[in-house]
Design a protein around this nucleic acid. Structure first.
Length: 252
DNA sequence: CAACACAGTTGGGTTACTTCA
DNA sequence: ACTGAAGTAACCCAACTGTGT
């Protein structure tokens, strides 16, 4: 198309006509006739915009079903397949819906191997009466879906794990608060030391210069909780019962 | 350079839901 | 209050583009 023709094609007119409105067919939508008074100011451009073609070369690609590979082009020559025609009469993109049988076979094949070599692709395409390119695209999309689902699963697991730790952290903070209160009142009224729970030192920021492992209690429960606070690592858990009372004194 | 994988995007089709006459 | 048509948002998925290997 020449440039002048394209830029000058802006006619203005007044008219009335019956237009069949293009709508997506739907089960709950009935077809009908529409009286449309709207007038495209630039029909040629509008028609192009519908399909979002960036240039003529790309349009050509679309028309040839993006058959980039020799395989596909060869395949197309002899194809009498309805799936091969990619565009509607009005130029809009046709959406292929794979049959249940095709999907089942593709799924079965995907379960065996998530990627295909050229031979397998050709064979499957022949079996399903599709283009190798369509097989390729299906496998790409299928891998993407699998990956997405995997990521979603991992996200849920991490979220659960985070919530559990958060709850535990909140619980321990409350417990610490209670212990501190009782210790303070004991110290004030009776002037003698009480044994401190193992975790006191690790949940306060004032005593972090001490190695955590030196202040941990000796019971199984204490060790486990300490490991949780250290990301599940039990390596630093060791006998330190001797330090507990001294730690309590320091804290006060 | 061809072939391929992958991430991201586009657009057609479907479905569930809402609004309104 | 009920019903059906129409509008819309959300979703799915085939197909595409761009990039890297």
């Amino acid at each position: 198309m020449n440039h002048e023709e394209e830029t000058c094609n802006t006619t203005l007119g007044l008219g009335i006509g019956v237009v069949i409105k293009r709508e997506k067919p739907s089960k709950n939508k009935k077809k009908g006739f529409w009286l449309d008074l709207s007038l495209p100011l630039h029909p040629k451009i509008e028609a192009r915009d519908d399909h979002d073609y960036k240039n003529d070369d790309q349009k050509d690609d679309q028309d040839s079903f993006s058959s980039k590979t020799v395989d596909d082009q060869e395949e197309r020559k002899g194809a009498s397949n309805i799936n091969v025609s990619n565009n509607n009469d009005d130029g809009s993109r046709k959406k292929l819906k794979l049959t249940t049988e095709q999907t089942t076979m593709l799924e079965d094949s995907f379960n065996i191997h998530s990627t295909l070599n050229t031979g397998q692709k050709q064979e499957l395409a022949k079996k399903l009466n599709l283009l190798p390119r369509q097989i390729e695209v299906w496998f790409q999309n299928r891998r993407a879906r699998t990956k997405l689902k995997q990521i979603e699963k991992e996200y849920e697991l991490l979220k659960k794990s985070y919530e559990t730790l958060n709850d535990e952290n909140r619980r321990l903070k409350i417990e610490l608060q209670e212990v501190r209160c009782s210790l303070k009142s004991d110290h004030h009224h009776h002037h003698h030391q009480m044994p401190l729970p193992f975790f006191v030192q690790y949940t306060t920021t004032t005593t972090m210069h001490h190695r955590p492992c030196d202040k941990i209690g000796n019971s199984g429960e204490e060790k486990k909780a300490f490991a949780v606070m250290n990301g599940g690592n039990m390596d630093h858990v060791r006998d330190n019962s001797n330090n507990k009372n001294a730690t309590a004194a320091k804290l006060l």
